[in-house]
Design a protein around this nucleic acid. Structure first.
Lengths: 242, 242
DNA sequence: ATAACATACTTGTTTAAACAAGTCAATAGC
DNA sequence: GCTATTGACTTGTTTAAACAAGTATGTTAT
């Protein structure tokens, strides 16, 4: 699977920053130096560096250089990254995941569902509820709506394993963009029924719409997390305004 | 203030998408067409389009075109955008903002503060607590720590207005990168004392570190929001992995 | 009819070059 | 000693070109 050059450079620089070869407040080698290091053009370097800037790993200082602003993070809560499956996140957070399917039916999207999820009225969708366990504790309650047309042969076994694995490796679908919304909500009776809430009466909720490589929104997910095991990271860069 | 070409194109396309000139699931004009429309090079177009993709406004489909995936959002809660001041967010959400300073002292960063905020031990910092009102309701509790060396002449008047205004327009400082963390937390006694919690016993919390154009982290902020007035949006794009 | 191919599109990657603009230190001139 | 300028760096913007690769639609040959 030959990756593109800028991705390789991006990955290598990222690893060096995470491995503290380049430390917080250090400068990366200048573009001209990196051109020799990686034997590529300036544009390719700049592309890799700008990806690191998007990740909040570095910041470019006009006329001076590119400074590392990455700081290693203390890992006690469950962090949410880019687009990751539950299994991938669990692995990154060094937890053992498991999943129980508690609901698996089909419905037709009506006006109310459209407003909540974005599925066009009349679409046939799977409606799924799952409880996610980390190291044996029921910490996350997932509600999935999946476009039936895009995921025809869905079974309970797939749901207990990983939908993303199935989509990407079996159906060959590529997940590309995910729009997410973060809120905090009171726990419902269903949350209380299925989760180990440990006294909490509220949850951190991520609602997301996922688009495949055809630009079709094929999934709506709501993940309801116990707050003490939840953490969402984000980096923003200021755009010149008015 | 002459902006760069790619920013102008980005802005124009963004407005057309928000104004529904290009609607959900539409394709943008092809790159070659836009080269003529804006009389510029292909790279410049591609840069503007990739910014829209980062915003979750469009998605590129190899060999086919660039599809709009922007959907207008229902506006009942307080949404968080890129890097925005409280005043800017309030304006965008059509609310009248006001601010009360309830604490304004100076402290020296110790080990505990370093671990929580990232300020180097021994730094002199301002410690500020403010209550933020939207349409008269006390909804947000803000804790700010600001590096004194970077913001020398800070006064209570500035805090009641807008720190960002002061930094950008008076001190000429540019805010560039912001690293943020989203969590949900139980309300403290201080929260209960100052906020109209309306029965809620928990809050949505955003903790952020802000870097200026010298790459210096000069601010740590914790914003504690009443959950029913809080919403955080984000877009992620999948990167090819191992 | 159908399969295969050609072709004219689309976006994706990479290189090269030129110029603008910010930073910093050494040097020249006072 | 001090200031001003120069020059050598840095990143930022823009154009141009070539080739790769995915998609759609035609036409051709079976």
């Amino acid at each position: 699977m030959p990756k593109s050059k800028f991705e390789l450079i991006y990955k290598e620089l990222k690893q060096k920053i995470e491995g503290l070869d380049y430390k917080y407040r250090d400068f990366l080698p200048s573009e001209n130096i990196m051109i020799d290091m990686f034997s590529c053009s300036r544009n390719t370097i700049r592309r890799a560096v700008s990806m690191l800037a998007e990740d909040g790993y570095v910041q470019s200082l006009h006329g001076k250089g590119v400074r590392v602003i990455y700081q290693p993070v203390g890992q006690n809560s469950f962090t949410i990254g880019g687009i990751e499956s539950f299994k991938e996140s669990a692995a990154r957070n060094n937890k053992t995941p498991s999943t129980k399917v508690v609901q698996f039916t089909e419905i037709i999207a009506d006006q109310r569902i459209y407003e909540k999820t974005g599925f066009i009225v009349g679409s046939e969708v799977y409606y799924i509820q799952r409880v996610r366990y980390l190291d044996g504790k029921a910490l996350i309650f997932d509600i999935n709506l999946l476009l039936k047309a895009v995921v025809p042969g869905l079974t309970k076994e797939v749901l207990e394993a990983s939908i993303y694995d199935y989509l990407e490796n079996v159906l060959g679908m590529q997940i590309v963009t995910s729009k997410r919304k973060m809120t905090a909500e009171r726990a419902t009776q269903i949350d209380e029924k299925y989760l180990d809430l440990n006294g909490y009466n509220f949850l951190a909720v991520i609602s997301s719409q996922t688009f495949n490589s055809d630009g079709i929104m094929f999934e709506y997910t709501q993940s309801r997390h116990r707050p003490d095991y939840f953490c969402f990271y984000d980096t923003a860069t200021r755009k010149k305004s008015p």
